[in-house]
Design a protein around this nucleic acid. Sequence first.
DNA 1: TAATTATGACGAC
DNA 2: TCGTCCTAATTAC
Length: 334
Amino acid sequence: MPEGHSVHRIARQFDRNIVGRTVAASSPQGRFAEGAAVLDGREAVAVRAVGKQMFLNFEGDVWLRVHLGMYGAWDFAGEVLADATIASANGRMGHTNQRGTDVDRIFDAAGENSLTSIGAPRRTRVRVRMSEQTTGLGDDGLDEAEWPPPVVGQVRLRLLTDVTCADLRGPTACQLQTPDEVQATIAKLGPDPLVDEPAAGEERFTSVVRRKPTPIGLLLMDQNVVSGIGNVYRAEMLFRARLNPHAPGRDVPEETVRELWRDWVRLLAIGVETGQMMTMDDLDAEAWRRAMAHRDDRHWVYHRAGLPCRVCGTAIVLEEMAARKLYWCPNCQR
DNA sequence: TAATTATGACGAC
DNA sequence: TCGTCCTAATTAC
């Protein structure tokens, strides 16, 4: 269940581990058999992330478009070169675990959860979702692990290089596109701070929001207005701006709208760096450490219905907005 | 074992 | 505004 930061991190994983390699592609589940057949044997040549979508380019002008939706995820297994700036050795991407990272159950050479990799980029042997049948690990970690890894559950698409396995399950979209179709898809999306020039993005975002009668709480979630914001970032950004979710876009002061964009630039960067939707970044070092360690200490309002507002003590309200849960403080956000 | 939940988005009224 | 699709982890019974 990724918002924009996860997709950018996933794209980086593909850049490091899949791009530049020839893949064996298959659809164990069968629902993407035709597409997998087209990809099979091709070299991945580039990857792009825009908002919540990832585009993987293969030789021959073939593109794979993936949108994870609410429960989609990529599982990486085998030898995975971790990015130093990706603070964790990444296995499962797209989902969050209870600690709130977008990594789930990574097993290192010692067979224990490994959530930290600091320093220069390095090769990390990772294994996700060890089954009961998994035998003991050798000195070198996963020498005795099966290769390729056994398929577990509903795998829509498996991309296999000599050393790395990437399994896709549960995506809301997984399709092949021509270069023109990729362009058309991206053209419909609102600005993404990591794709567009921040200043240009700010202009686009501001001018659209300031024209609409739509509640700002809906506009932030509208991927045609701004890319990558989901239900968590939406609630948190509105609180950080002390903004009433129901305020029509055109009634929000221009400077406030610009500040919303700049806040998204900031939060997305932190999210990509840490792998966590850390929205309480204005904290001292100790509070930051605590927030990073405990998922429950990480948000101002998200998932805090009925709990006292961290600023004023008023009970956080939960309401439905466009069939999604919206959390906000009726006192702070007037 | 079943119900519930989830960080999305689309199409039919 | 509603129903629908995608899947697995967590919680309730």
